[in-house]
Design a protein around this nucleic acid. Structure first.
Length: 674
DNA sequence: GACTAACGTTTTTTT
DNA sequence: AACGTTAGTC
């Protein structure tokens, strides 16, 4: 293996083998390379069996990339390191062992929307007003409890002072038993139950300790308490843990991430070897100058400075604009100009924003200007209504207890089971403590209904039963069965009828078509319906090769941009209230917003444009904006401030002169002609 | 029960 | 501006 192109620090990290290792890796310091080389080094030079290496990342994208890189450097058949996200790792453990905790192994996973639906249901049961207590907030608190590994029975309401958290503590057990009744786990549960499993069954823990001799965790600054617990459990007595991260890039505090996990790593794993990667190979000196200047304002951090290996570079532009429309148009124009003059590809550009909502304006302008773009993350494929409907059908086929899914499709499309019947159904379930599916078979329930209602329920039960059987009988044809189902239930025609425009119709048809193809593919790969649904929830990016290969300008949120890099970056919306976000200002988490900006800046390789507006549309209304307070923290050395309006006026003046001569010429020519 | 129109609410970031 | 919820009508 060729280690010569690594710098001394990188080499140290790669070569270290026994005992805890922490790699503090600044942005663009070749972190991914170190991780990959380290894995390869362990296997090839130290003779470690690949399957005893576990690498954990936060996103599927990162996991996928790591797998890809390792695969390219390793021509192993069969044995391969286990590389996955925290959540999918836990999922695999739980699918095998969760029965020990009294759950059935075919549990469903609830995503954010499912969780919200369930919380709303629970709040109704517990008679909590959704007006006084926003369901989202309660859910957020429940998630907070879970991230601290607090179970419902650990709640101590008397220690809680304020209303929302207190209410959430009360709701927690209701929510948790509702999940259990639905045979479902939410995202956090995947971790909670795994930690619980290892806690209650030490032999199981030892078993996995024996399997995983070397553990590597990427983006360590983003681990929360629960994830730290899991890491501690997984790391056996040998303490062969390699944690890689950068406290300056900690941007998931709102999800319970604790920077102390990396800042005080030695508290968890004594006497770690510490390696710092401070040489940046990604960005110009100018871009790094701005980044370093900004992050100096960040309190309590590992002291470090990113050193530029690429000297000089164009100054970073800080542009003032009158409005968001102009901002988007300006970027579009600049991109077009740079592409032709600078011989760039569309893929070289990225537009970064604080929130998804802001991306829409840019998207619209790019479409108008015929600039191809790829939207990352924003409205995920799996968030589309028709996709969720179809997945709900599949979930009901896969898992008879999937109540949230069942209720979603109960009357979608309308089949005579209206609000009344649904209400009776729910009440009956609650009274008898029965599952929805079982209740629909229950004589004492159906006899309560009108003749019409009872008939509708009977038809529905028959329909689902019928298709469940058909899927069971022929897995390979699951795609076809799904298509039949959507036709026979009138779902597809019904949905098409409800579309207002042809474009919408086409999009929906496509989405459903893609889903059918994806299902068929998954079945061909030998996956179960269960696994297909797992992938849909946990890896919510569309598994769409077309989008992967699609060329174009990247539109992406700051959060989603972490770990990525682009030659030219436009970072928009540097306004007080946007970045830092209004909520962050209220909650006092400005420091995290600064790091978010830092992450954004360090994505840029060659050119960086920062911009802010005077006015921006908010809730469909024009609102005045202040430049972000962060703009004052960027230093002056590498910044050039520009004003769009002034430049336009200057250009207009030039145009006027041009116009004057033009009309003179026309006049003279006109005279000459006479 | 199904459909429509008006109303009110929403917005952080992700597995 | 866009979405979900609700009240009112057939």
């Amino acid at each position: 293996m060729d280690l010569e192109n690594l710098n001394p620090q990188q080499l140290q990290a790669v070569r270290h083998s026994e005992g805890p290792l922490i790699v503090v890796a600044g942005a663009g310091s070749g972190k991914t390379r170190v991780i990959t080389y380290r894995i390869i080094h362990l296997i090839k030079e130290k003779g470690i069996p690949p399957e005893s290496i576990l690498a954990i990342t936060f996103t599927n994208k990162a996991a996928g990339e790591m797998k890809e890189r390792v695969r390219n450097m390793l021509d192993l058949r069969g044995a391969f390191p286990w590389i996955s996200t925290f959540h999918s790792f836990c999922l695999r453990i739980l699918r095998r062992h969760i029965s020990e905790l009294g759950f059935s192994n075919d549990f469903a996973i609830y995503d954010a929307q499912d969780q919200l639906t369930l919380v709303k249901q629970c709040m109704k049961v517990a008679q909590i007003s959704a007006d006084a207590f926003p369901p989202k907030t309660l859910l957020h608190h429940i998630s907070g409890f879970k991230n601290d590994f607090l179970l419902p029975e650990d709640m101590q309401p008397e220690t809680m002072s304020y209303g929302h958290q207190l209410k959430a503590a009360g709701l927690y057990s209701v929510y948790q038993s509702a999940l259990k009744k639905n045979n479902a786990l939410d995202f956090d549960d995947l971790l909670v139950f795994t930690v619980q499993l290892f806690q209650e069954y030490p032999s199981l823990r030892t078993h996995y300790n024996d399997i995983f001799r070397y553990i590597l965790v990427d983006e360590f600054q983003d681990t929360n308490g629960l994830q730290m617990d899991l890491v501690m459990q997984l790391v056996g007595p040998q303490h062969n843990i390699c944690a890689v991260g950068d406290d300056d890039q900690s941007i998931y505090g709102w999800r319970g991430a604790q920077v102390t996990n990396i800042l005080q790593f030695e508290r968890f794993f004594p006497n770690p070897k510490v390696v710092r990667l401070e040489d940046n190979y990604r960005s110009t000196e100018a871009i790094l100058g701005v980044a370093n200047e900004l992050i100096k304002h960040s309190p309590s951090r590992h002291e470090k400075t990113l050193r530029a290996t690429i000297k000089g570079g164009e100054k970073v532009v800080l542009m003032a604009l009158p409005g968001d429309e102009e901002e988007a148009n300006w970027a579009a124009k600049e991109i077009k100009k740079l592409r032709t003059k600078g011989d760039r590809r569309w893929e070289d550009f990225a537009i970064l924003f604080r929130t998804n909502i802001h991306i829409r304006k840019v998207e619209q302008v790019l479409r108008e200007q015929d600039i191809p773009y790829r939207l990352i993350g924003a409205q995920s494929f799996f968030d589309r209504r028709e996709v969720r409907d179809v997945l709900a059908y599949l979930q009901v086929l896969a898992n008879p207890l999937a109540d949230v899914a069942l209720l979603r499709i109960l009357n979608t499309p309308p089949r005579g089971i209206g609000a009344n019947t649904a209400m009776l159904l729910l009440e009956h379930c609650r009274e008898k403590g029965m599952q929805t599916w079982a209740t629909m078979h229950d004589e004492s329930f159906t006899s309560e209904l009108s003749k019409k209602g009872a008939g509708a329920i009977r038809n529905f039960v028959e329909l689902i039963g019928n298709f469940r059987q058909r899927v069971e009988e022929n897995r390979m044809k699951a795609g076809e069965v799904l298509r039949d189902l959507l036709t026979e239930t009138d779902y597809l025609p019904w949905m098409m009828r409800s579309c207002r425009t042809d474009e919408e119709r086409e999009q929906r048809r496509e989405a459903v078509g893609e889903l059918v193809v994806a299902l068929t593919d998954a079945m061909k790969k030998g996956k179960t319906l269960q696994q297909f649904l797992d992938d849909a929830v946990l890896d919510a990016e569309p598994e769409d090769e077309e989008l992967e290969n699609k060329s174009g300008v990247t539109l992406i949120t700051l959060h989603a941009s972490k770990g990525l890099e682009y030659p030219i970056v436009f970072l928009m919306g540097l306004e007080e209230g946007v970045l830092p976000h209004r909520r962050s200002i209220e909650e006092g988490t400005r420091d995290e917003e600064r790091r978010l900006l830092y992450v954004g800046i360090t994505r840029a390789q060659q050119l960086l444009y920062l911009s802010y507006c005077d006015m921006r549309k908010k809730y469909g209304e024009l609102v005045r904006c202040e430049p972000s307070s962060f703009t004052a923290e960027l230093g002056e050395e590498w910044i050039v401030e520009r004003d769009y309006l002034e430049e336009m006026n200057a250009v207009a003046d030039e145009d006027d002169v041009e116009d004057f001569f033009g009309s003179m010429r026309a006049m003279l020519e006109g005279e000459g002609g006479q």
